[in-house]
Amino acid sequence: MNSTRKAGGFFARLSSTRIVYLVALLTLIVGAVLVATTGRNFFSPGNISSILTGTSVLGFIAIGQTLVILVGSLDLSVPYVASLTSLIAAGVMANSSANILPGVLLALGAAAVIGLANGLIVAGLKVHGFIATLGMGLIISGYLATNFKGSFGQAPFAFRLVGATGLGPVPISTLIMLGCAVLAMLLLHRTRTGHHIYAVGGDLNVARMSGIRVQTPIITAHVLCSLLAGMAGLLLASRLGVGSPTVGSQGGYDLLSIAAVVLGGTLLSGGKGTITGTLGGVLIFAMLDNIMSVMQVNPFLKDVVRGVVIVVAVAVYARRSIVKRQPRFGHGQPEEPARKQEVAA
């Protein structure tokens, strides 16, 4: 009993971001040992490169998802936005390198419009983000299913290089993703909108009463999230060489990105969390995938492992009290006494 309390104290003192990276380190060690038993090297440049490649697509989406979750919303439309942008980009480029710039701009423009629509529905019409983006995802998915029966367009060689090359073991796509992460961090910690995102996510009414225009951060977060999903779509188009109407939904990026964000210590109800934590969550997923591929785990069992890891990892730190403030009236949290009685009963 005493030791568990001590452990609780140890965990309570750690920030959730540190716990995420401890979990990532644990995954790394376990992975290295497991991979070594098959006679291969976990830290070979090829393997590191493949892990980092695995982080980039989910990374883009998870960074955007972090912004949206921080502001107290959700985005379930990201996989469809990614599919749509991959189609637009590959369609406009049509295997000609002169069209790369228009293709990219048009694809990101479409993503931004979708994000704007999401933001306006959530902030203006007061529709829960879950429903607004679920609906938006369905709308796009219907459009995609009706108009595209298979892969479409062709990405030129120069554009495909983006997804295929790297600096040493680090792929270019991962570097771009990290660049976006840095920009998102700057936005969150150095700009007014960033602080407003935390404030609105923490408590919308308090934010409004302190004079914040609550619509602006919500809309900004949604637009940025869709843009980043669009970046993921561009990357997918560059890797596949074509646009595909199902590439996003097959990846299950909506739920996986939310899982990565929560795994990274961000509160699902908004107002608390960091991009750094999210990157840790994405890294854990990428390493798990890699380890299981190297170990040749049955692909269906991968889902089982992922599901268990998500719940267990979040459970590790979800038990700690979320609010670090001193209790105001000398009591603990209101639920505490009731729970003790329950345990006794």
Binding site: L255, I258, A259, V262, L268, S269, N298, F300, L301, K302, D303, V304, V305, R306, G307, V308, I310, V311, V314, A315, A318, R319
Partner: peptide, 27 residues
């Protein structure tokens, strides 16, 4: 129990359950 006692958000718990069960069924 995982949602209420371990205080994991139900979105995550049931998402994990969804992945795990579906994976088991497919396996």
């Amino acid at each position: 129990l995982v949602t209420t006692l371990l205080k994991v958000p139900s979105f995550i718990v049931t998402l994990g359950m969804m992945l795990a069960l579906f994976g088991l069924v497919m396996f």
